[in-house]
Protein backbone atom coordinates (compact mmCIF):
# COMPACT_ATOMS: atom_id res chain seq x y z
CA UNK A 1 0.00 0.00 0.00
CA UNK A 2 3.03 2.30 -0.25
CA UNK A 3 4.41 4.61 2.38
CA UNK A 4 2.26 6.22 5.01
CA UNK A 5 2.26 9.57 3.31
CA UNK A 6 1.29 8.18 -0.06
CA UNK A 7 -1.44 10.16 -1.72
CA UNK A 8 -4.79 8.48 -2.35
CA UNK A 9 -6.52 11.36 -4.08
CA UNK A 10 -4.79 14.20 -5.90
CA UNK A 11 -6.71 17.16 -7.19
CA UNK A 12 -5.18 20.16 -8.93
CA UNK A 13 -6.92 23.27 -10.28
CA UNK A 14 -10.14 21.35 -10.74
CA UNK A 15 -12.83 23.36 -12.51
CA UNK A 16 -16.38 22.43 -13.43
CA UNK A 17 -18.77 24.76 -15.15
CA UNK A 18 -22.07 23.30 -16.26
CA UNK A 19 -23.38 24.36 -19.65
CA UNK A 20 -25.30 27.64 -19.44
CA UNK A 21 -24.34 28.14 -15.77
CA UNK A 22 -23.21 31.71 -15.00
CA UNK A 23 -20.52 30.61 -12.53
CA UNK A 24 -18.24 27.66 -11.91
CA UNK A 25 -19.68 24.94 -9.69
CA UNK A 26 -16.13 24.02 -8.81
CA UNK A 27 -13.81 26.96 -9.20
CA UNK A 28 -10.24 25.70 -9.40
CA UNK A 29 -9.65 23.68 -6.26
CA UNK A 30 -6.53 21.71 -5.34
CA UNK A 31 -5.97 19.29 -2.50
CA UNK A 32 -4.59 15.88 -1.65
CA UNK A 33 -6.03 13.07 0.43
CA UNK A 34 -3.50 10.87 2.21
CA UNK A 35 -3.76 7.15 2.00
CA UNK A 36 -5.67 5.73 4.96
CA UNK A 37 -7.19 8.96 6.19
CA UNK A 38 -10.81 10.01 6.53
CA UNK A 39 -11.17 13.20 4.57
CA UNK A 40 -14.22 15.40 5.09
CA UNK A 41 -15.71 17.83 2.65
CA UNK A 42 -17.67 20.40 4.57
CA UNK A 43 -19.89 22.97 2.94
CA UNK A 44 -23.48 24.07 2.49
CA UNK A 45 -25.74 22.60 -0.17
CA UNK A 46 -24.62 23.76 -3.58
CA UNK A 47 -21.05 24.44 -2.45
CA UNK A 48 -19.61 22.06 -5.03
CA UNK A 49 -19.07 19.01 -2.84
CA UNK A 50 -21.18 16.58 -4.82
CA UNK A 51 -19.81 17.89 -8.11
CA UNK A 52 -16.25 17.33 -6.87
CA UNK A 53 -17.12 13.80 -5.76
CA UNK A 54 -18.85 13.28 -9.11
CA UNK A 55 -15.66 14.18 -10.96
CA UNK A 56 -13.49 12.02 -8.71
CA UNK A 57 -15.80 9.06 -9.26
CA UNK A 58 -15.75 9.52 -13.08
CA UNK A 59 -19.42 10.46 -13.33
CA UNK A 60 -18.87 14.13 -14.19
CA UNK A 61 -16.39 15.39 -16.74
CA UNK A 62 -14.37 18.33 -15.39
CA UNK A 63 -14.04 21.54 -17.41
CA UNK A 64 -10.41 21.88 -16.39
CA UNK A 65 -7.70 20.64 -14.05
CA UNK A 66 -6.60 17.17 -13.05
CA UNK A 67 -7.78 14.54 -10.62
CA UNK A 68 -6.19 11.26 -9.70
CA UNK A 69 -7.55 8.48 -7.52
CA UNK A 70 -4.97 5.97 -6.30
CA UNK A 71 -2.62 7.38 -8.89
CA UNK A 72 -5.06 6.92 -11.80
CA UNK A 73 -6.18 9.91 -13.83
CA UNK A 74 -9.98 9.85 -13.66
CA UNK A 75 -10.40 11.63 -17.01
CA UNK A 76 -7.78 9.75 -19.01
CA UNK A 77 -8.56 6.32 -17.55
CA UNK A 78 -12.06 6.29 -16.05
CA UNK A 79 -12.34 2.51 -16.39
CA UNK A 80 -9.11 2.02 -14.43
CA UNK A 81 -10.24 4.51 -11.80
CA UNK A 82 -13.57 2.70 -11.33
CA UNK A 83 -11.65 -0.47 -10.42
CA UNK A 84 -10.08 1.18 -7.38
CA UNK A 85 -12.86 3.39 -6.08
CA UNK A 86 -16.10 2.66 -4.32
CA UNK A 87 -19.09 5.00 -4.18
CA UNK A 88 -21.95 5.36 -1.74
CA UNK A 89 -24.28 7.94 -3.29
CA UNK A 90 -26.76 10.23 -1.58
CA UNK A 91 -29.77 8.51 -3.05
CA UNK A 92 -30.76 4.88 -3.01
CA UNK A 93 -29.53 3.31 -6.23
CA UNK A 94 -29.73 -0.34 -5.22
CA UNK A 95 -30.88 -2.83 -7.83
CA UNK A 96 -34.56 -3.28 -7.00
CA UNK A 97 -34.86 -6.45 -9.03
CA UNK A 98 -32.30 -8.21 -6.86
CA UNK A 99 -32.19 -9.25 -3.22
CA UNK A 100 -29.72 -7.68 -0.82
CA UNK A 101 -27.29 -10.55 -1.19
CA UNK A 102 -27.65 -10.55 -4.98
CA UNK A 103 -26.95 -6.82 -5.04
CA UNK A 104 -23.63 -7.52 -3.37
CA UNK A 105 -22.79 -10.57 -5.48
CA UNK A 106 -23.58 -9.02 -8.86
CA UNK A 107 -21.71 -5.84 -7.98
CA UNK A 108 -18.65 -7.95 -7.19
CA UNK A 109 -19.06 -9.86 -10.44
CA UNK A 110 -19.00 -6.60 -12.41
CA UNK A 111 -15.65 -5.94 -10.77
CA UNK A 112 -14.22 -9.37 -11.47
CA UNK A 113 -14.19 -10.72 -7.94
CA UNK A 114 -14.00 -14.54 -8.33
CA UNK A 115 -17.12 -16.48 -7.34
CA UNK A 116 -15.77 -18.10 -4.16
CA UNK A 117 -14.33 -14.87 -2.87
CA UNK A 118 -17.47 -12.89 -3.59
CA UNK A 119 -19.59 -15.31 -1.63
CA UNK A 120 -17.21 -15.16 1.33
CA UNK A 121 -17.03 -11.36 1.24
CA UNK A 122 -20.80 -11.01 0.88
CA UNK A 123 -21.35 -13.24 3.95
CA UNK A 124 -18.81 -11.30 5.99
CA UNK A 125 -20.15 -7.88 4.98
CA UNK A 126 -23.78 -8.87 5.46
CA UNK A 127 -23.08 -9.95 9.01
CA UNK A 128 -20.84 -6.95 9.75
CA UNK A 129 -23.57 -4.62 8.59
CA UNK A 130 -26.33 -6.43 10.45
CA UNK A 131 -28.09 -7.56 7.31
CA UNK A 132 -27.43 -11.29 7.41
CA UNK A 133 -30.88 -12.35 8.59
CA UNK A 134 -32.68 -10.39 5.88
CA UNK A 135 -30.27 -10.87 3.04
CA UNK A 136 -32.90 -12.41 0.77
CA UNK A 137 -35.24 -9.42 1.04
CA UNK A 138 -35.66 -6.84 -1.69
CA UNK A 139 -34.24 -3.31 -1.12
CA UNK A 140 -37.74 -1.80 -1.35
CA UNK A 141 -38.68 -3.39 1.97
CA UNK A 142 -35.94 -1.74 4.00
CA UNK A 143 -35.58 1.46 6.02
CA UNK A 144 -33.33 4.37 5.08
CA UNK A 145 -30.63 3.33 7.54
CA UNK A 146 -30.60 -0.23 6.24
CA UNK A 147 -30.46 0.96 2.62
CA UNK A 148 -27.44 3.06 3.56
CA UNK A 149 -25.75 0.04 5.11
CA UNK A 150 -26.48 -2.07 2.04
CA UNK A 151 -24.94 0.53 -0.21
CA UNK A 152 -21.81 0.72 1.91
CA UNK A 153 -21.55 -3.07 2.02
CA UNK A 154 -22.00 -3.22 -1.75
CA UNK A 155 -19.33 -0.59 -2.33
CA UNK A 156 -16.90 -2.63 -0.22
CA UNK A 157 -17.43 -5.84 -2.19
CA UNK A 158 -14.61 -5.10 -4.61
CA UNK A 159 -12.29 -3.88 -1.84
CA UNK A 160 -11.84 -0.32 -3.14
CA UNK A 161 -8.71 1.63 -2.28
CA UNK A 162 -10.73 4.81 -1.83
CA UNK A 163 -14.33 4.90 -0.68
CA UNK A 164 -16.44 7.97 -1.45
CA UNK A 165 -19.53 8.64 0.66
CA UNK A 166 -21.78 11.48 -0.39
CA UNK A 167 -23.75 12.93 2.55
CA UNK A 168 -23.81 9.54 4.27
CA UNK A 169 -25.87 10.48 7.30
CA UNK A 170 -28.51 12.68 5.69
CA UNK A 171 -31.91 11.38 6.68
CA UNK A 172 -30.62 8.79 9.14
CA UNK A 173 -31.91 8.49 12.69
CA UNK A 174 -29.33 8.97 15.49
CA UNK A 175 -28.75 5.25 16.02
CA UNK A 176 -28.23 4.59 12.32
CA UNK A 177 -25.91 7.57 12.13
CA UNK A 178 -23.80 6.30 14.99
CA UNK A 179 -23.61 2.85 13.42
CA UNK A 180 -22.42 4.39 10.18
CA UNK A 181 -19.77 6.45 11.95
CA UNK A 182 -18.47 3.33 13.66
CA UNK A 183 -18.22 1.50 10.35
CA UNK A 184 -16.30 4.37 8.80
CA UNK A 185 -13.87 4.43 11.72
CA UNK A 186 -13.45 0.68 11.30
CA UNK A 187 -12.75 1.03 7.59
CA UNK A 188 -10.08 3.56 8.37
CA UNK A 189 -8.53 1.18 10.87
CA UNK A 190 -8.41 -1.43 8.10
CA UNK A 191 -6.54 0.97 5.84
CA UNK A 192 -9.28 2.13 3.47
CA UNK A 193 -9.13 5.78 2.51
CA UNK A 194 -12.51 7.39 3.04
CA UNK A 195 -13.72 10.64 1.51
CA UNK A 196 -17.04 11.94 2.85
CA UNK A 197 -19.08 15.01 2.10
CA UNK A 198 -21.25 16.50 4.79
CA UNK A 199 -22.93 19.66 5.90
CA UNK A 200 -22.98 18.37 9.45
CA UNK A 201 -20.35 19.99 11.70
CA UNK A 202 -20.46 17.22 14.25
CA UNK A 203 -19.96 14.57 11.61
CA UNK A 204 -17.04 16.44 10.09
CA UNK A 205 -15.41 16.95 13.50
CA UNK A 206 -15.96 13.42 14.76
CA UNK A 207 -15.02 11.44 11.68
CA UNK A 208 -12.46 13.36 9.72
CA UNK A 209 -8.72 13.39 10.10
CA UNK A 210 -8.77 16.49 7.96
CA UNK A 211 -11.55 18.73 6.79
CA UNK A 212 -11.78 20.79 3.62
CA UNK A 213 -14.20 23.67 3.90
CA UNK A 214 -15.65 24.64 0.55
CA UNK A 215 -18.19 27.23 -0.48
CA UNK A 216 -19.18 28.55 -3.90
CA UNK A 217 -16.80 26.07 -5.46
CA UNK A 218 -13.75 27.42 -3.66
CA UNK A 219 -11.58 25.68 -1.10
CA UNK A 220 -11.50 28.01 1.89
CA UNK A 221 -9.50 26.00 4.40
CA UNK A 222 -8.01 22.56 4.80
CA UNK A 223 -6.65 21.10 8.01
CA UNK A 224 -7.40 18.82 10.93
CA UNK A 225 -10.60 19.96 12.70
CA UNK A 226 -8.64 20.76 15.88
CA UNK A 227 -6.09 22.80 13.95
CA UNK A 228 -8.78 24.74 12.11
CA UNK A 229 -10.32 25.64 15.44
CA UNK A 230 -6.92 26.40 16.97
CA UNK A 231 -6.29 28.98 14.24
CA UNK A 232 -9.14 30.89 15.74
CA UNK A 233 -7.32 30.72 19.12
CA UNK A 234 -7.69 33.58 21.49
CA UNK A 235 -11.13 33.96 20.14
CA UNK A 236 -13.83 33.12 22.54
CA UNK A 237 -17.41 33.96 21.95
CA UNK A 238 -20.46 35.38 23.62
CA UNK A 239 -23.63 34.30 21.89
CA UNK A 240 -26.10 37.07 22.68
CA UNK A 241 -29.79 37.02 21.97
CA UNK A 242 -30.96 40.61 21.76
CA UNK A 243 -34.49 41.86 21.57
CA UNK A 244 -34.94 45.07 19.58
CA UNK A 245 -36.35 47.11 22.49
CA UNK A 246 -35.92 50.80 21.53
CA UNK A 247 -33.31 50.04 18.87
CA UNK A 248 -34.45 50.47 15.29
CA UNK A 249 -32.11 47.93 13.74
CA UNK A 250 -29.45 45.44 14.72
CA UNK A 251 -26.57 47.36 13.25
CA UNK A 252 -26.71 50.01 16.00
CA UNK A 253 -26.29 47.29 18.61
CA UNK A 254 -23.58 45.61 16.55
CA UNK A 255 -21.76 48.95 16.23
CA UNK A 256 -21.89 49.61 19.94
CA UNK A 257 -20.38 46.20 20.67
CA UNK A 258 -17.58 46.54 18.14
CA UNK A 259 -16.50 49.78 19.81
CA UNK A 260 -15.72 47.86 23.00
CA UNK A 261 -11.95 47.39 23.46
CA UNK A 262 -12.05 43.63 24.17
CA UNK A 263 -14.32 42.82 21.23
CA UNK A 264 -12.69 41.63 18.00
CA UNK A 265 -15.75 41.45 15.84
CA UNK A 266 -19.46 40.79 15.89
CA UNK A 267 -21.40 38.55 13.53
CA UNK A 268 -25.13 38.27 13.21
CA UNK A 269 -25.83 34.55 13.18
CA UNK A 270 -29.53 34.58 12.45
CA UNK A 271 -32.63 36.38 13.68
CA UNK A 272 -35.28 33.98 14.91
CA UNK A 273 -38.58 35.83 15.13
CA UNK A 274 -37.74 39.40 16.03
CA UNK A 275 -34.73 38.77 18.28
CA UNK A 276 -31.18 39.09 16.95
CA UNK A 277 -28.59 36.46 17.63
CA UNK A 278 -25.20 38.09 17.72
CA UNK A 279 -21.94 36.20 18.09
CA UNK A 280 -19.40 38.43 19.82
CA UNK A 281 -15.76 37.37 19.41
CA UNK A 282 -13.64 38.57 22.29
CA UNK A 283 -10.05 38.46 23.48
CA UNK A 284 -9.30 36.89 26.83
CA UNK A 285 -11.79 35.74 29.39
CA UNK A 286 -15.45 36.12 28.62
CA UNK A 287 -17.02 36.23 32.09
CA UNK A 288 -15.72 39.67 33.18
CA UNK A 289 -17.06 41.14 29.95
CA UNK A 290 -20.64 40.13 30.56
CA UNK A 291 -21.62 43.30 32.38
CA UNK A 292 -19.89 45.55 29.85
CA UNK A 293 -21.56 43.84 26.91
CA UNK A 294 -24.99 43.97 28.56
CA UNK A 295 -24.51 47.64 29.28
CA UNK A 296 -23.41 48.42 25.72
CA UNK A 297 -26.45 46.63 24.28
CA UNK A 298 -28.71 48.50 26.67
CA UNK A 299 -27.11 51.85 25.74
CA UNK A 300 -27.72 51.09 22.06
CA UNK A 301 -31.42 50.57 22.80
CA UNK A 302 -31.53 46.75 22.70
CA UNK A 303 -32.28 44.31 25.46
CA UNK A 304 -30.07 41.29 26.19
CA UNK A 305 -32.35 38.30 26.82
CA UNK A 306 -29.95 35.37 26.67
CA UNK A 307 -26.22 34.81 26.59
CA UNK A 308 -24.04 31.75 26.13
CA UNK A 309 -20.26 31.61 26.56
CA UNK A 310 -18.51 29.54 23.95
CA UNK A 311 -15.24 28.12 22.79
CA UNK A 312 -14.83 28.28 19.03
CA UNK A 313 -16.05 25.26 17.04
CA UNK A 314 -15.82 24.20 13.44
CA UNK A 315 -19.00 26.14 12.91
CA UNK A 316 -17.25 29.35 14.00
CA UNK A 317 -14.45 28.58 11.59
CA UNK A 318 -17.05 28.20 8.87
CA UNK A 319 -18.85 31.41 9.75
CA UNK A 320 -15.53 33.22 9.94
CA UNK A 321 -14.57 31.98 6.47
CA UNK A 322 -17.87 32.40 4.68
CA UNK A 323 -19.58 35.14 6.67
CA UNK A 324 -22.66 33.04 7.25
CA UNK A 325 -23.98 30.04 9.11
CA UNK A 326 -23.92 26.64 7.48
CA UNK A 327 -27.67 26.13 7.38
Amino acid sequence: MGSENAVAVEVSDLVKRYPKAPVDSVGGISFGVRRGEVFGFLGPNGAGKTTTIGILTTRIRPTGGHARVAGIDVVADPVGARRVLGVVPQQNNLDRSLSVRQNLLFHASYHGVPRGLRKARADALLSQFGLADRSDGRPDDFSGGQIQRMMIARALMHAPTVLFLDEPSTGLDPAARLFMWERIAQLKSEGTTVVITTHDMEEATTLSDRVAIIDHGKLLALDAPAALVRDMAGERTLDCTVEPGRAVDGSAVQGALIRLAAVDRVEQVDDPGGAWRLRVYVQGDTAPLLAVVAQAIDDAGGRLTDVRLGEPTLEDVFIHLTGRALR
Binding site: G112, L117, A120, R121, Q128, H158, A159, W181, A185
Partner: peptide, 19 residues
Protein backbone atom coordinates in the same frame (compact mmCIF):
# COMPACT_ATOMS: atom_id res chain seq x y z
CA UNK B 1 -14.40 7.41 19.09
CA UNK B 2 -14.67 5.16 22.09
CA UNK B 3 -17.50 3.16 20.63
CA UNK B 4 -15.20 1.90 17.93
CA UNK B 5 -12.70 0.47 20.37
CA UNK B 6 -15.28 -2.07 21.46
CA UNK B 7 -15.97 -3.18 17.94
CA UNK B 8 -14.44 -6.42 16.93
CA UNK B 9 -12.42 -5.63 13.88
CA UNK B 10 -12.34 -8.58 11.54
CA UNK B 11 -10.53 -8.44 8.28
CA UNK B 12 -12.75 -9.18 5.31
CA UNK B 13 -11.93 -12.18 3.17
CA UNK B 14 -9.61 -10.99 0.47
CA UNK B 15 -7.79 -12.57 -2.39
CA UNK B 16 -6.16 -11.94 -5.67
CA UNK B 17 -8.59 -10.54 -8.18
CA UNK B 18 -8.02 -12.15 -11.56
CA UNK B 19 -7.11 -10.04 -14.54
Amino acid sequence: MTAVDDLEVRALPSGRVRP
